[in-house]
Amino acid sequence: MTGKLLGVASGVSLAVLAVLALVVVPPDAVQGDAQRLMYVHVPTAWLAYLAFFVTAVASVLWLWPRTRAPHWDLLAGSSAEVGVVFTGLTLALGSLWGRPIWGTWWEWDARLTTTLVLFFLYVGYLALRRTGATADERGKRCAIAALIAFADVPVVHFSVTWWETLHQDATVFNPDLDVRMEGFWMPFTLVFSVLAFTLLYATLVRTRLRLAELDEGREERELQRAIEERRRAEVVPA
């Protein structure tokens, strides 16, 4: 029931967001209509970071002996998958915005580069999840991998920032990503977009978690059946 409600709420709020961002909000004085992309780019980026943060927290909860439960491992994996989808989307939206504003699809800006590395780090994490170990073994390895990836992000960001500031004078484009929000509708729509996408995140993770639990149950049952068959095969000839 909560799932249905959550789904409907996120669907409605996304529809409202589309109307706000595409119709109600006036075009930006400097960036024109391209600035409307911010109302999806910013919340998808927020959602990606939120998702990886949840993955890290769930991984800690799995590793902590007192809170260890299979549930945390599945949540970490589900959240990471949603995070990867939205990191990819963030990068694509950033490119679509950068093309008209910066005049280029890609700029080796610190934020962009870190996000790209982040994307690959968690693609690797998802690949690690699918390598068929027992639930406990997978939980342990993936929780550790998630925490290492999470800890790696600030170091990557730091080194990339440093690298970027070295040849900033070579940058012909204005790399200023910070958007000035004027009037009432611009900040309102941005805050609303973040809320709407957070709802979407909750819906997606909930759904993905349900799938993870189903898959887990099926794998367990298959294992059980295989063991039983083996046992029967051993008993009969004797």
């Binding site: 780090l121 693609v123 690797g124 690949a127 690690l128 991998a145 730091f158 080194s159």
Partner: peptide
């Protein structure tokens, strides 16, 4: 896939 992004720095 795991190592290369991690050793970016």
């Amino acid at each position: 896939l795991l190592v290369l992004p991690a050793v970016t720095p």
